[in-house]
Design a protein around this nucleic acid. Sequence first.
DNA 1: CTGAAAGCGCTTACAG
DNA 2: CTGAAAGCGCTTACAG
Lengths: 340, 340
Amino acid sequence: MAASTALNGSRTSSRISKETRERILKAAARLAYRPNATARALANRRMRTLGLAAVIDGGELNNYFLEVFNGVLEAATRHEQNTTVFALHDWGADTARLHGLCDGRIDGLILLAPTISRPMTRLLPAHTPFVSLHANIALPGVINIESDEEKGAREMVRHLVRCGHRRIMHVAGPTRQLGAERRFRGYRRALAAARLPYERDLLVKAGYTVAEGRAGVRDWLRGHAGRPVPDAIFCANDGCAIGCIQALAEAGLRVPDDISVAGFDDTLAARTTVPQLTTVRQPLREMGARAVEVLLARIAQLEGAGGKAPDSPIVFPVALVDRASVSAPPRVLRLVPASR
Amino acid sequence: MAASTALNGSRTSSRISKETRERILKAAARLAYRPNATARALANRRMRTLGLAAVIDGGELNNYFLEVFNGVLEAATRHEQNTTVFALHDWGADTARLHGLCDGRIDGLILLAPTISRPMTRLLPAHTPFVSLHANIALPGVINIESDEEKGAREMVRHLVRCGHRRIMHVAGPTRQLGAERRFRGYRRALAAARLPYERDLLVKAGYTVAEGRAGVRDWLRGHAGRPVPDAIFCANDGCAIGCIQALAEAGLRVPDDISVAGFDDTLAARTTVPQLTTVRQPLREMGARAVEVLLARIAQLEGAGGKAPDSPIVFPVALVDRASVSAPPRVLRLVPASR
DNA sequence: CTGAAAGCGCTTACAG
DNA sequence: CTGAAAGCGCTTACAG
């Protein structure tokens, strides 16, 4: 008992004499004593570790994950919490697996971009605090962290228009994904605001991966040989923007000389590509850090330790990042080259 | 007792009657019973979670980490192990922090690219199984997983020579880093084998980040205005190769038309850059997965459960991946443009 | 086949 | 100020 309170500085009814405390501390140092974490967790009902559940998209964690994870890890470390990562293959099939994690090994869980259907919502473990990031629907009792994606899309398209572009293509993200829909909506609103027509032919349905962006744009180009290329392409995220640039390069079109391309997210990939991407920055890292803070507040709240967690969604602002992949349109009309 | 053995199917002296077992199982299902992980861990001395310690380089986890982590996570999930990630800022300063992790919360630890000095080696926690990946020095009692980096470098430079390049620059990684040294050595050996001179002026000391690659090459170009550019550049990793391409682009030099650039590692970045990088593939994902397997074998071994862990380093083969950033040298001599 | 008991290594009222 | 005791929720010999 004396050892426990001396080592933890915890406040019980008990006081320890200076002498005893020092004797304990000295002995602990000599023995390189480490309190056993599992015994402590069992007694405290607190593991001091947070979970991060992410779907591995196409078999691998991507740059979006990396960015958020950097923020999560930073904040968790700052609060002396460990972080354990759970890779799911599918939110639908693996919702059950989440229960296996809520067995005392974590104190709370961050759901990363969960696409959970309304009925499945009731299958979520009941007694574990959650926070979600970019959730597709509002999960009951779960605070969601998101950003103003529609506005970001609007501003990017407005920027393209200001640069002189008129025929602006949109390479869209996964259908029925809330974020992708918001970006698409922002695109249409910005066109309308600029009194530009929305042309169905300039919408390419792709997804968030490089491969999908590449395939989508490649197919479009194949189907439009000899016709004019768009002035600019607004892609639903950085990943498919990169795929898009690859497809353009294969067709002999240069970015931004022949055609401008913009992304969304500002992940590491936007900075480590040539040309660097003009994109909409979501502060993913800060959002990840915030998820940790909110989750910790929620845990403290449930423990009755005061601390109020917010209960409405937290919306982060977005910002346009102007780099090298967007410029003014070329003077001469570019046509889609015949495919090789 | 009956519940425990029925639920775990564990083999004690005890047998449970079919009836009792079924009654237990049914009750467990009805109550949605989950054994508490910490209590279980306390009794078993086994948490079923593995740690991954990584230094966050320049404030963020990078593509190298992402690649390895994908493999670690995949293998850990397959073996029903959780994975917790520890971010260190510095191997020197934070070696002590590792002790805080070896307190029962993990069963073993993967050290990712540790640069631990010889004397610090004795400060590592003694009773936790370790595996290292790309360790700078052999850690006593720790199995290291690495790849044949020197050979990879040799083959890449040989490939450049075969493409017709003669003046081949090397953008080097961090000094005193074993891997970077091996790559540099491979470069020199390949030059010697091709009877090409090693020119000190064609060595740029950079590092593994995009920023360092960019700055290194930019400075070199500034210092060589009006002089011929190299035929090709072999970079110590993909990150600095991308920085290199950015610096070349800023100077108006195109890859691979004006100059060829090769990377090393084959991280996600190599595939998501335009042009896609010709690079040396280290099977980072497989190496991460293997780290898990070896660690698990080591844990089983220490538990006396048989299972032999290897004790000499495991060396993975490398492979040249020929993509778009390397081609034959241009017909005309390129000079470094005057800086703008 | 079944169940009482001790133990894993901590924390925290509680009685002296 | 100090220490004996109970409890956190499991597992596993051990005696019936």
